[in-house]
Every structure is written in C-alpha cells, then in structure tokens.
C-alpha cells in the first residue's frame, strides 16, 4: 500500500471544478500522473505539460506546471521543440487517442523514431468525447460511435505495438481500474531517458459507454477488470483468447541514445575534432 501523496500543490484548484463528466476516467489518469511525479525530486517549475485538443487535453489547464494547450494533434512537435530548445526541462505530453493516433499519428511515430526525452500519456477512451462521441482509430471493430451508428468497420491500432515498431524505448499500458499500477507505470515512464509512451485505457461513460450500452461508470470499470490480463499471463495464452483482452504491463524497456543527447554529442564532437573539412 503506497502512502497517499499530497497532490494538491500540483493543481490549480482555483480552476476547479473540471469540465469532465461524472464517471469520466480522465481525472483518474491525471491523479496517477500527479502521484507519480510527486515521488520524483523534480522542480515543478521545470516541468512543462503540453496537451492537444479534446477532453483529456484540458488536463493541462488544471495543472500547476508550465503548460501549453496546443492545437489538435500537434502537442508532440510542439513538445519536441521545447525539449530540443531546453533539454533541462521535463516535458510531458497529454493527449487523447484521437489526437495521438489520428490527426497526430505522423508526429507520434516520428517522436518515437527520434527517441526524444518526452513522456507521452495517451488518454485512451476509444472515442472523441468533447465533440460528441465520434469514431477514433482506437474505437473497436463493430463498436458504435455517432459517426459509425451501425458499427465501426475499422480495426483499431494497438498503440503499444505502434509505439514499439516506431522506436519508442519505453512502452507500457495501464487501466483506470488499476490506478496504483498505472501510477507506477507512469513513474517508470517519467524516469526513462528517451521517448516513453503510456497507453492509459480509460472510460467515457457519456458517449462511448452510452452508445455501446456499457452501463454505468462502475460497470465500465468492471468491464475493464474482467477483460484485463497481464503481459506475463498473455504470453502463455493463444492469440484468440487474448484478442479482446486489455493486455497491461511494460512492453518495451530499451536503451537507445536519447535525441537531445545525440545533438549535444554532435556539438561536442564537432567542437573537439573540428569536423569541418
């Protein structure tokens, strides 16, 4: 049992209440993030939280760090600029699954390829909440959305596999049903030197839940509980058994030179051996 951390200093409480619906999982992800960051010896004024557009991206507005609420899909390039300009800053990106895998999909794979020292927390609720429950690249096949009223034809991405294939050096998935595990995953991700991705599976009772008849917020969390399986367990099971499960754990933990370190090395090398010919 971890001691409950005092996360109030990290919040702009004067901005409360949040815009999030009752039963929304965004607050649970933010809570896990704040408890995680409170365990680190970081100066909050050296932390920058960059977010996109959507329900979850409004998180930055409640956090007492340097914050930048960018445009839809663009938090990663913006954050990349910040990190490259000042590698001393701790840069965290918060964005939804639409932000990350649809409009910002290209930026996502390239941030992973660069292995830049940014922690990306994807609030993955499988839908576009703020704009009214449209389909996302993370909406399950045959699931309903206001733009897919007869069921989604597509197959969703696996964010963790996508991140791994693109070169992210820390990749993990957690669920809001298990906030303590999610917190420790985020802690590991924040400590990691390189591009770290957390696929935080969360619930949207107002749209996704209602459109797909998933019941109350509690029912949605129960669904998570019933469908979760650890990476270790999943490894020994056949593919069709884990097909509709949420596999959680650390998928990738690799060492590869971080991008701003490579830049620094380039400058140091050039300074030393005068690579000018």
């Amino acid at each position: 049992m971890t001691k409950t951390a005092d996360i109030k200093p990290y919040l702009r409480l004067e901005r409360y209440p949040t815009i999030w619906c009752a039963g929304c999982g965004n607050g649970q992800v933010v809570g896990a993030f704040l408890r995680a960051i409170s365990t680190l010896d970081w100066d909050p004024k050296k932390v920058v939280v960059v977010s996109g557009i959507g329900c979850s991206s409004r998180a930055s507005g409640y956090l007492n760090f340097n914050t930048m609420h960018t445009t839809h899909g663009r938090p990663l390039p913006f954050a990349t600029g910040i990190k490259l300009a000042n590698p001393e800053l701790h840069v965290v990106v918060m964005a939804g699954d639409g932000d990350t895998t649809a409009i910002g999909g290209n930026h996502f794979i390239h941030a992973a390829r660069r292995n830049i020292g940014i922690t990306m927390i994807v609030f993955n609720n499988g839908t576009y909440g703020m704009t009214g429950g449209q389909c996302s690249p993370m909406t399950g096949h045959a699931c309903k959305a206001t733009t897919a009223p007869y069921g989604n034809l597509d197959t969703p991405f696996d964010i963790c596999k996508l991140a791994e294939a693109a070169g992210a050096t820390f990749v993990g998935r957690g669920i809001t049903y298990a906030p303590v595990k999610l917190e420790s995953l985020i802690t590991e991700a924040l400590k990691h030197k390189g591009f770290s991705v957390i696929d935080a599976v969360t619930q949207c009772p107002t749209y996704y839940g209602r459109l797909n008849k998933m019941g109350s917020p509690a029912d949605m969390l129960t669904w998570q509980k019933e469908h979760v399986i650890s990476l270790e367990k999943a490894a020994s099971l056949p593919k069709h058994v884990i097909q509709d499960k949420i596999v959680t754990g650390v998928f990738v933990k690799d060492l590869r030179p971080e991008y701003t370190t490579l830049y620094r090395r380039l400058h140091e090398q050039c300074g030393e051996d005068d690579c000018h010919d």
Binding site: V48, V50, M68, T70, T71, R74, L76, P77, F78, A79, T80, G81, I82, K83, L84, A85, N86, L89, N106, H107, H110, Y263
Partner: peptide, 24 residues
C-alpha cells in the same frame, strides 16, 4: 544550434513554436 528536419511542415512549425516558447 539545432537544425531539425521535421516529418512534415505541420510538425516543423509546431516544433519551432515549442522551441520559441522554451526560449530559442
């Protein structure tokens, strides 16, 4: 200096804005 080839121009402008915000 940093000279970064972005994945597209959308990224390029957002990177420079991020860097500008951070002080470059």
């Amino acid at each position: 200096i940093v000279v970064e080839q972005a994945e597209d121009e959308i990224s390029a402008i957002n990177m420079v804005l991020g860097a500008s915000y951070a002080g470059a």
